[in-house]
Amino acid sequence: MGPRAEQERGVARFEESVLPHMDSAYNLARWLTRNGHDAEDLVQESLLRAFQAFQGFRGTDGRAWLLAIVRNACYTWLRRNRQQEVTTEFDEEVHTLEGDALNPEKLVLREVDSARVRQALEELPAEFREVLVLREMEGLSYKEIGTVVDIPVGTVMSRLARARGRLQRGLTSRPGEER
C-alpha cells in the first residue's frame, strides 16, 4: 500500500472511530469551561491534535481516548483562565461517604426543573462535575471514566458518591443558602 492510500485510510479510520464522538467531546468541554465559545475552540483544537496523534492510537475505545484529550485541553485552559476553580478544596477522603448519608432533609426529588439542576451542577468543583457528566450524560463505565480522568476505578466510585452527595445538598438547600 502506498503512502497516499495509507493516508486516506488513516483519515477514514479517524472519521469513523473518533469524529462520531464530537457531541460527547463538546458536552464535556462545555460543562468544564461553562462557556460555549471556549468549548468550541477547545474541541476543534483537540480534534486536530487527536488527528495528529491518531497514528499512534491502537486502542478500540475512540470515545474515551478523545475525551481524555479534550479533558486535558480543558484543564490546561482552566489553569490558565480560571485558576481559582482548579485549586478549590478537594480532598479524596472516602470517609465522608457516611457523612453524606441519612440527611433528614434529603428528599426524593420529583420534577426538579432542569435550570436548577444545571445551576447546581455548574457550582460543583470541576472534578465532581466531570465524573457526573461522564457517568450520567455519557453513560461511561467506571473503567472508561478512569481512563478519561486518569484515576483508579475505586476512586471513580468514591468521587461519584461524593459528587452525588454534594449535588443533592445543592439542590435541597434553600435558594441563597450554601454559596
Partner: peptide, 12 residues
C-alpha cells in the same frame, strides 16, 4: 434529572 436532554450540550 441529570439525564434530562435539556442539560446536554450538542456540538454547535
Amino acid at each position: 434529572a441529570l439525564r434530562d436532554q435539556a442539560l446536554y450540550f450538542r456540538s454547535p
